[in-house]
Simulated scan of single mutants.
Amino acid sequence: MNNISIRSACKDDAVALAKIYAHYVEKTAITFEYTAPDAAEMERRRQEISQKYPYLAAESDGKVVGYAYAHAFYGREAYAWSVESSIYVDVNTRKQGIGRKLYEALEEDLKSMGILNINACIAVPRDEKDPYVTNGSLNFHQHLGYTLVGRFHNSGYKFDRWYDVIWMEKLIGSHTIHPRFPAKNKPRR
């Protein structure tokens, strides 16, 4: 899959985003939501996040095959230079470089805004034979330069089992005195 383009997600993507995400909600412990949001809710979320942060879609042959976005890490002013990231790739197109391209574009957009830290909250298995989550996301983030900063035990309950979550971070800018306050997102084409 070489013809992947990355662009800002738009209203017309809501059905595709909901479909991609539904797999992860219904079949995995990658997300701790129990009920998959419909297209209208996905569009509401996209609109809200896009007001300030990038919300990107990966497209191949006219079809949305993944998406990634960043949102506020915490609602306090001193956290303005930090975001939390999320990424979901269509289950049928995983391991084809889409996630890397999405995260590279997301990081580029965040850097241009003045964001310095990207944080990722990742569900991890407590048992290596867990049918609902693997260490794939942890390995993916490590490969992209994220480092492990913490583990919270028994933080999420789904599919009649408890899950740990880990936090990983990637520093993407210089931490100086009087940093430029981050700008709002400038959507891609």
Score class of each variant (00 low, 15 high):
Met1Arg: 06
Met1Cys: 12
Asn2Ser: 12
Asn2Ala: 10
Ser5Glu: 08
Ser5Phe: 01
Ser5Asp: 05
Ile6Met: 00
Arg7Val: 10
Ser8Asp: 10
Ala9Glu: 06
Lys11Asn: 02
Asp12Asn: 06
Ala16Val: 03
Leu17Gln: 07
Leu17Arg: 01
Ala18Asp: 03
Ala18Asn: 03
Lys19Cys: 08
Lys19Met: 08
Lys19Thr: 13
Ile20Arg: 07
Ala22Lys: 09
His23Leu: 01
Val25Gly: 12
Val25Asn: 05
Lys27His: 13
Glu33Leu: 10
Ala36Leu: 08
Ala39Val: 04
Ala40Gly: 11
Ala40Cys: 06
Glu41Ser: 11
Met42Cys: 13
Glu43Phe: 06
Arg44Gln: 15
Glu48Lys: 12
Ile49Ala: 14
Lys52Leu: 07
Tyr53Cys: 02
Tyr53Ser: 11
Pro54Glu: 14
Pro54Ala: 08
Leu56Val: 08
Glu59Arg: 09
Glu59Leu: 02
Glu59Met: 02
Asp61Ile: 04
Lys63Ser: 10
Val64Arg: 02
Val65Arg: 10
Tyr67Pro: 13
His71Ala: 11
Phe73Arg: 00
Phe73Cys: 09
Phe73Met: 06
Arg76Leu: 15
Ala78Asp: 05
Ala78Asn: 08
Ala80Ser: 14
Ala80Asp: 15
Glu84Thr: 12
Ser85Met: 14
Ser86Trp: 09
Ile87Lys: 01
Asp90Phe: 08
Asn92Val: 09
Asn92Gly: 08
Thr93Trp: 00
Arg94Trp: 07
Arg94Lys: 12
Lys95Gly: 02
Lys95Phe: 09
Ile98Gln: 03
Gly99Gln: 00
Arg100Asp: 12
Glu107Ser: 01
Glu107Thr: 14
Glu107Pro: 06
Asp109Phe: 00
Asp109Trp: 03
Leu110Glu: 06
Leu110Lys: 10
Lys111Cys: 08
Lys111Met: 15
Met113Phe: 00
Met113Thr: 03
Gly114Phe: 06
Asn117Ile: 11
Asn119Cys: 13
Asn119Arg: 06
Asn119Lys: 12
Ala120Asp: 11
Cys121Ser: 09
Cys121Thr: 03
Ala123Asp: 03
Ala123Thr: 15
Pro125Ser: 05
Asp127Thr: 04
Glu128Met: 13
Asp130Arg: 09
Asp130Gln: 11
Pro131Cys: 07
Ser137Pro: 03
Leu138Ser: 09
Leu138Phe: 15
Asn139Arg: 12
His143Trp: 03
Leu144Val: 10
Gly145Ser: 06
Leu148Arg: 07
Leu148His: 15
Val149Leu: 11
Val149His: 10
Gly150Gln: 10
Gly150Asp: 13
Phe152Val: 15
Phe152Ile: 13
His153Glu: 14
Asn154Thr: 03
Ser155Phe: 08
Tyr157Gly: 04
Tyr157Thr: 04
Tyr157Trp: 15
Phe159Tyr: 05
Asp160Met: 07
Arg161Leu: 08
Arg161Val: 05
Tyr163Lys: 08
Tyr163Asp: 00
Asp164Trp: 12
Asp164Arg: 05
Val165Asp: 02
Ile166Ala: 03
Met168Leu: 11
Glu169His: 05
Glu169Phe: 00
Glu169Lys: 09
Leu171Trp: 09
Ser174Gln: 13
Ser174His: 00
Ser174Val: 00
His178Val: 00
Pro179Met: 13
Arg180Tyr: 08
Arg180Thr: 13
Lys184Pro: 02
Lys186Phe: 01
Arg188Glu: 04
Arg189His: 14
Arg189Tyr: 09
